[in-house]
C-alpha cells in the first residue's frame, strides 16, 4: 500500500459505459479474451466457473410484452478506489499482497505468481469481477501460438481479473519514454482492448481526473451512475443511462427510495 512516488504523474484511470448504447454484441468480451490470454474450455455456460474479465449482463425492465425493454450492462473489474481511498474491498483482504491498488494509476493489480488461491478477494468483491482458475488452462492444437507475450498465462489455482489492460499502459509509457516525453501519454495512446473493440462506441476510457479526457466530462453526466454505489466501494467505472429502471437495476433501494439522478424529478 504505497503512496504515490513524487516523481510520477498521478492518474486515475476509469471507464464510462453508455448503457443506452451498448448492443450486447460481446465484442468487448472476445477482444478481452484475445488481448489478455484468457483461457477457454469446451463447457463455458456455467458462468461462475468461466473466466470473463468483462461480462455483459442482460437487463430487462420486467414489463410485459410489448412494453418490455432490454439493456446490456458490460461489467469489467470496477477498479474501486475503496471506502478509504486506496483500499478497495479486495485489496485489504488479500493476505499475501497479491492484489494491490496502484496509486499512480488507480488500477487494482493482480499478481498471478503471488496469488496462492485463497479466494478471499472473491468473497470481498460484490461485483463478481474476480474469477478463479479452477482448471489448468489448455490451448489445444497450436492455439498456444496466438497467446500474447504481454500478458502472462495463468495457472490453475490463482485468481484473475480485468487489469484495465495494464500492459498497454506500460507499453504506452515505454514508448513515451523512448520518444523523450516521459509521463506524457496521450488519451489515444492508452485504451483498453474492450474500449477499442466496442463497435457501438459505448465504452469510453481515460483519466477520470484529467479535464481533457472524455471520461472526465462523461462521468459528470446527469445520468451517470455507478454499480452498487451504496456499498461505498467507489468504483472507477461509471455508467450512463437515461432509463430510470436501469438505475434501479444498478443498486439496491428500499421502498420509496429513488435513484439519485431521478430524485429531483420525483420531488
Amino acid at each position: 500500500m504505497q503512496k504515490i512516488p513524487s516523481h510520477t504523474k498521478a492518474r486515475h484511470f476509469g471507464m464510462v459505459i453508455d448503457v443506452d448504447k451498448c448492443t450486447g454484441c460481446a465484442s468487448c468480451m472476445v477482444a478481452c479474451y484475445s488481448e489478455n490470454n484468457v483461457s477457454f474450455r469446451d463447457e463455458e455456460s456455467a458462468k461462475m466457473l468461466s473466466l470473463n474479465w468483462i461480462m455483459v449482463y442482460k437487463l430487462t425492465n420486467g414489463e410485459s410484452f410489448p412494453d418490455t425493454e432490454v439493456c446490456y450492462l458490460p461489467q469489467p473489474c470496477m477498479h474501486c478506489d475503496g471506502k478509504e481511498f486506496g483500499k478497495p474491498p479486495c485489496v485489504s483482504v488479500c493476505p499475501a499482497v497479491a492484489t494491490d491498488f496502484d496509486w499512480p494509476t488507480g488500477i487494482v493489480s493482480q499478481i498471478y505468481t503471488r496469488c496462492f488461491g485463497c479466494r478471499y478477494c472473491m468473497a470481498a468483491c460484490p461485483y463478481h469481477a474476480r474469477q478463479f482458475n479452477w482448471w489448468d488452462p489448455v490451448w489445444p492444437a497450436d492455439m498456444e501460438k496466438y497467446l500474447s507475450p504481454n500478458v502472462s498465462a495463468r495457472t490453475r489455482g490463482v485468481v484473475e481479473k480485468c487489469s484495465f489492460c495494464y500492459h498497454r499502459f506500460q507499453l504506452a509509457r515505454q514508448k513515451a519514454y523512448h520518444e523523450g516525453r516521459p509521463e506524457e501519454i496521450g488519451e489515444d495512446e492508452y485504451q483498453t482492448a474492450c474500449t477499442q473493440a466496442c463497435p457501438s462506441g459505448a465504452i469510453t476510457f481515460g483519466d477520470l481526473d484529467n479535464p481533457e479526457h472524455e471520461v472526465y466530462k462523461l462521468k459528470q453526466d446527469r445520468y451517470a451512475f455507478r454499480l452498487l454505489e451504496r456499498l461505498n466501494t467507489n468504483p472507477s467505472v461509471y455508467y450512463i443511462s437515461k432509463r430510470k429502471w436501469v438505475h434501479r437495476m444498478a443498486d439496491n433501494y428500499l421502498e420509496g427510495e429513488v435513484p439519485a439522478a431521478f430524485a429531483e424529478n420525483e420531488a
Binding site: 500500500m1 483500499k87 485489504s92 483482504v93 488479500c94 493476505p95 499475501a96 499482497v97 497479491a98 503471488r114 496462492f116 485463497c118 478471499y120
Partner: peptide
C-alpha cells in the same frame, strides 16, 4: 506466501 508476503491488514 501468507507468512512471507504477509499483508497485515488482512
Amino acid at each position: 506466501f501468507i507468512f512471507w508476503h504477509a499483508n497485515i491488514h488482512s
